[in-house]
Write a protein that binds this DNA or RNA. Structure first.
Lengths: 158, 158
DNA sequence: GATACAGTACTCGGATAGGACATGTCCGAGTGCTACGGG
DNA sequence: CCCGTAGCACTCGGACATGTCCTATCCGAGTACTGTATC
């Protein structure tokens, strides 16, 4: 799995703490000392998925497109990794003895079904947890986290 | 995820139907029209993991190292994909504000914990299902599957 | 006929290329701010 | 003092290199079989 997922999740948390203030990729990258241009690329993926909105120009940047309660971890993972499952059945049974080309073995092959069951368990777990859940957990353990984040992210007064 | 996982699972099933007769990689590959040398590589990984045993020379090949009841899908996946998790925390919080280099954020970072929860659900589902489960399901749905497999895999009498 | 032995064909195992995707970087299009000049 | 406007700095967005891992292949080491010659 791409490490961009980790970056995206932490960045979304920071965006949540930034309230609705637009934060440029440069600042989100500086927060964890990440390559700014590359993080920008991941944030673009989040924008395409409708998780964040982007604004160009000065005072521009990214902000959450909806409240953290309505953003699941699965949303973020899918935005970065893509829709397709990790295990994708190649339907090799079609070339086996008795294989039919008019059968969709992604549904009928029992190996595929078993792997899909595991994949669904994974997705269900990710879909259960929202960004707000993690945010609340962090805040209850580190009450000053929001203040620290805002301090780092807010544009310094000129 | 590597497609070698799919090949390995189907090949293990075929090895189960071959009973304890050694089957060379060439025949397992011919079963689904796969590249023989590359499948051999995957089978080597299974051998290193102790899932199958290998025998060189004529009448040699691979056979299951233990009964299908004692081989979980997780065993096969780990043998091919490796031990490490799909999501591996890079501990970017170490470079963030208040980050400590003496803290293992793979355990303490809540993002990492949430991702790990999902990963554990996935692994648990894979560890629950054994090769025997799939084998029995296939046999109950296609009673002639074992015979077809043995027909294809057994060395023709000379 | 039984046996020893050399040759052979077959198999795994690891070393070796090729290609696809993740990673990382750079520059252009667009936008809002800012400062200046005029009314 | 207020307003319009030109310039500018900043941001995203996509196009362009680089590295790493999956995919695929080939050849050598080892082994069991087979056939033959000998006793």
């Amino acid at each position: 799995m791409s490490e961009g997922v980790e970056w995206a999740l932490h960045s979304c948390l920071n965006l949540a703490w930034a309230e609705q203030q637009a934060v440029p990729a440069r600042k989100l990258a500086a927060f964890y000392d990440l390559p700014p241009a590359y993080l920008n690329r991941q944030l673009q993926a989040l924008a395409r998925a409708g998780i964040v909105t982007s604004t160009s120009g000065p005072r521009g940047g990214f902000r959450l497109a909806r409240s953290p309660e309505q953003i699941t971890l699965l949303d973020v993972v899918v935005a970065i990794e893509g829709e397709q499952d990790a295990f994708r059945c190649q339907q090799i049974m079609r070339d086996g003895p008795g294989g039919r080309s008019d059968v969709d073995y992604r549904k009928h092959c029992l190996v595929s079904q078993a792997m899909r069951r595991a994949e669904l368990a994974w997705r269900r777990e990710l879909a259960t947890q929202t960004l707000a859940d993690i945010k609340d957990s962090v805040e209850s353990r580190h009450p000053d986290a929001p203040r620290v984040a805002r301090n780092q992210l807010d544009t310094p007064a000129r």
